[in-house]
Design a protein around this nucleic acid. Structure first.
Length: 879
RNA sequence: GGGUGAUUAGCUCAGUUGGCUAGAGCACCUCGUUUACACCGAGGGUGUCGGGGGUUCGAGUCCCUCAUCACCCACCA
């Protein structure tokens, strides 16, 4: 097949992907005797289309998966999607709002029907895009967080935790989002700075400060630090009558260390229903708690004349009223405070006390390493003991810091989209309230209130995601047999037995807490195993200006689809790993995609060249090196191939890529192929093409497979090829080629700086030049290379890199500027020599530095001295 | 308040356990239509590796300190 001049990715990518999928090369085999290698794909949220962040993780994981296959491992890269409760719920509610309706108006059933339709469409789009990225995932094992088998795992986990006393239901203060009408976990709350007003009011004999006057109606506790001398006269429990918003109230003095005496007046009133700190104070002293704001963000009847108003409406009026009553002391408009926002839905958080389900992270009931430990302790231990290795390691500190601050995890949500909480309630026939917690619904039924009603809430998305590494490996058929106990289910699931714990979890650092930590938590608890051995955390892809891509700046968003249309998938993939280090964010750069589009084209043209030269004499035999260039390129290949292997084993994607890029472009294309034109070795050329296609395949799967499919003597798909067997060349011969490179380099430099057009090179007869003259002539683009008489060449420019007499037919009188060059080079060499001599004169250095380093220095010195001598000789000729 | 990262060429960034003369891509300058490729080839880099101090035979790399920027966690009413 004749390849066109330029590689046009669009023409081939779709067909190539189909070829792979049909060949079954991505399908894992748990019965294989080969070493198993497993990666769980972080399931993308089904919220529309794939982002550049998805493109990045697909690239990284695909490189690992394809590389592992090349190493001969049985690879499972298990793909899936996440129902993404909160984000999806937010999208649907927004749609409903646009249509002028609400979820309550259409009802739970209709709401879920619409949601399923939306996620169904999203899923198809996203799965298509994942294939477009070249993801070598095992689609026969595609999973979805709401699959029935996964749902069973969710229920199993909930029920086990419930019976172990790890899950409890209680009235606690939660982060309530009045817009989505649900609470969210601490991790889902973010704080934004806002310029606000800080008011100081008179409260009996005290002055109290607040930024939120609208919560203050029922404040009847005045709190101060126990050792604050200013208020020593007031004793804990004292009561006093004070005039307040809606008339006089009885205030009780509370002494609590939570109060910071240096902030404001050191006195505050508390609103336990709407503040965590206040709630905790109230809990410590057994104080009353009263709700002031309803779940929609409006004031309750306790607000008197303000009842029913929104916070925004009520706030200025309350201040006005207090001012009129003479209770407003001070208004500070220059006050910066932090507003809590629901990260996923953007609603402003109003803390509320609600009856919710929680996971207790401190109760020591989890058997781990022969001890009963708390979830928190297990989380700490597996990372401290390096059972789970986090890369880059600095994230361990962040991880531990998160655990130290970890509170009980609120897992219930009031949204409708998600896993329903497996708890049912009813009134017993004898009038008692009864609760049923089970993997399946209760079977005994009753009439009316005597019938079981399931808890209306759903679980936090991360509760199901936390099970991802193993819930996806459970045999989905067996999981439907509810008579089979959970332990048996694990034992009888071949995938779980073969692939768990998985090898690596590759994901963004931004979900270290949400997801990675919770996978460790739930997996150690349920399976007794860690979920993965390594955690590789990548950074965010930022916009070209270095800022976060954001929907509010649509021009900042890079769509993978658009990039692929213009440059091809391979170019996008390599642009995403080029020059990027683990855990660090990268800015998107157009230059990087273009460079890699060009790189793909380079590979393409290397193949075109091989095709013309090798033609039908293509060979799969092991090559026999003949020329120095042959020996040299084989040595380079050996270094590069093993280097890339060890880089990838250590997740050094960027370094591996860099080695690949420069081997292919510089060593192979610029040096070897050019050199081989004077001395072709077709067998070796075939071998080299095969070797680089395989090496480049994990990074650029499409262009390499496209080329592979045109080769005459191929065997199956490139995706199924192991690395080539390395052939060792002769070291001396390889060194000879390096000498050729040095001579060519110097000749090119001289010609360039003197604007000499195709001079000839002459040399005093020697064997090296007899063998390498032709290749030097070709590489340096010389007129001819021939034996000459040194005596007649005293006026010509001699090369300084060759150890024999060798000159260009450029007379020195035409080349005065060249002398400057020589002088400069001499100075450089002299400086180097001085430095190296000093180093060797230092006894401490010779004594303490490792032997090979000292030897290296001696060699450097020798080389530099020889170079200087040649330069001096040549300079002398010019004078 | 606690913590992390960044600071290296004009720009964007690499640089494993300290050890060759500190690198890449892009941009830039000069030359070149050599039949694989102009999405190309050849040549071109004097960078106080943010400042200061320290450890060491040796520091971009380790320690201390300061500065600037970014981010994470906690959060004071």
């Amino acid at each position: 097949m004749k390849l066109p001049k330029q590689y046009d990715a669009k023409q081939y990518e779709t067909d190539i992907y189909m070829l792979w999928e049909q060949s079954g090369v991505f399908t894992a085999d748990p019965t294989s005797s080969r070493e198993h290698y497993a990666i769980s794909m972080p399931p993308p949220n089904e919220t529309g289309t794939l982002s550049i962040g998805h493109a990045l993780f697909i690239t990284l994981q695909d490189i690992l998966a394809r590389h592992a296959r090349q190493q001969g491992k049985d690879v499972l890269w298990l793909p899936g999607t996440d129902h993404a409760a909160l984000p999806v719920n937010a999208i649907i509610e927004k749609q409903l709002l646009k249509e002028g309706t609400t979820k309550h108006a259409i009802g739970r059933e209709e709401f879920l029907r619409r949601t399923r339709e939306f996620v169904g469409n999203s899923r198809q789009t996203m799965l298509g895009q994942m294939r477009m990225m070249g993801a070598s995932a095992d689609w026969t094992r595609l999973r979805y967080t709401l699959d029935e088998a996964l749902n069973r795992c969710v229920n199993e986990t909930f029920v086990k935790m419930y019976h172990d006393g790890l899950i409890y239901r209680g009235n606690r203060i939660v982060n309530w989002d009045p817009e989505l009408e649900t609470n969210v976990s601490d991790d889902e709350v973010m704080y934004e700075e806002e310029q606000g007003t800080f008011y100081t009011f008179r409260y009996g004999p005290f002055e109290i400060g607040t930024a939120r006057p609208e919560t203050k109606f029922a404040d009847k506790y005045v709190v101060m630090h126990p050792s604050d001398k200013r208020y020593a006269q007031y004793k804990h429990g004292d009561t006093l009558k004070v005039e307040w918003i809606n008339g006089p109230v009885t205030a009780t003095v509370i002494k609590d260390e939570a109060v910071d005496p240096s902030f404001g007046t050191g006195v505050m009133t508390i609103t336990p229903w709407h503040s965590l700190v206040d709630f905790e104070i109230a809990e410590r002293h057994g104080l009353d708690k009263e709700q002031i704001i309803d779940l929609h963000g409006n004031l309750l009847p306790v607000a008197g004349e303000f009842a029913g108003m929104s916070i925004a409406e009520a706030r200025p009026r309350i201040v006005e009223k207090l001012k009129n009553k003479g209770l407003l002391i001070k208004t500070d408009t220059d006050y910066v405070h932090h507003v809590a926002i629901n990260e996923r839905g953007r609603g402003v958080i109003e803390p509320q006390i609600r009856l919710q389900w929680f996971v207790d992270v401190n109760k020591p009931v989890v058997p781990w390493k022969g001890k009963k430990q708390s979830l928190k302790a297990v989380l700490q231990q597996v990372v401290r003991d390096k059972e789970v290795q986090i890369i880059p390691p600095r994230f361990e500190k962040i991880y531990f810091n998160w655990i130290d601050n970890l509170r009980d995890w609120c897992i219930s949500r009031q949204i409708w989209w998600g896993h329903r909480i497996p708890v049912w309630y009813r009134t017993d026939p004898n009038g008692q309230q009864a609760t049923y917690v089970g993997i399946q619904p209760p079977t005994d039924s009753g009439e009316g209130e005597h019938n079981w009603r399931q808890d209306p809430d759903t679980l936090d998305t991360w509760f199901s995601s936390a099970l991802w590494t193993w819930s996806t490996l459970i045999d989905p058929e067996l999981a439907l047999d509810y008579n089979l106990p959970f332990e048996e289910l694990l034992k009888n699931s071949p995938d779980f037995q073969a692939y768990h714990p998985t090898n690596v979890m590759e994901t963004g650092w931004d979900i270290l807490f949400f997801w990675v930590a919770r996978m460790i938590l739930a997996t150690t608890y349920m399976t007794g195993q860690i979920p993965f051995r390594d955690v590789y955390l990548h950074g965010l892809v930022r916009a070209e200006d270095g800022k976060k891509m954001s929907k509010s700046r649509p021009e900042s968003i890079i769509e993978p689809q658009t990039v692929i249309d213009t440059y091809g998938t391979d170019a996008l993939r390599m642009a995403l790993i080029m020059g990027v280090s683990p855990g660090n964010d990268q800015s998107w750069g157009r230059g990087k995609v273009e460079a890699n589009r060009n790189f793909c084209n380079k590979i393409w043209n290397i193949a075109r060249y091989c095709e013309t030269v090798v033609g039908s004499s293509w060979s799969n035999e092991n090559p026999v090196p003949a020329s120095p260039a042959d020996h040299w390129i084989l040595a380079r290949l050996a270094t590069i191939q093993s280097g890339i292997g060890s880089d990838l084993d250590k997740y050094r994607f960027s370094e591996a890529y860099d080695k690949l890029y420069h081997f292919i472009w510089n060593d192979l294309a610029d040096w070897y192929i050019e050199a081989s034109k004077t001395d072709p070795n077709n067998q070796l050329l075939s071998y080299l093409l095969k070797a680089i296609l395989i090496l480049a395949h994990p990074f650029a799967p499409f262009v390499t497979e496209t080329i592979w499919q045109t080769l005459p003597a191929r065997d199956g798909t490139l995706a199924s090829q192991p690395l080539v067997t390395l052939v060792t060349g002769d070291k001396k011969q390889a060194t000879a080629f390096e000498k050729v490179q040095a001579i060519v380099g110097e000749a090119r430099f001289i010609m360039k700086s003197l604007h000499a057009q195709r001079p000839s090179l002459f040399y005093a007869d020697n064997l090296f030049m007899t063998h390498n003259g032709a290749v030097i002539q070709h590489l340096a683009r010389l007129n001819k290379v021939a034996i000459g008489d040194p005596d007649s060449a005293q006026d010509n420019i001699h090369l300084t890199t060759s150890k024999f007499n060798c000159w260009l037919d450029i007379p020195k009188h035409k080349a005065h500027s060249y002398l400057d060059n020589l002088t400069k080079k001499q100075a450089t060499e002299a400086a180097t020599i001085k430095q190296l001599k000093q180093r060797l004169a230092n006894e401490a250095y010779v004594k303490n530095a490792p032997e090979h380093v000292v030897m290296q220095t001696r060699e450097q010195l020798k080389t530099a001295e020889e170079a200087l001598e040649s330069l001096q000789q040549e300079a002398a000729r010019f004078r």
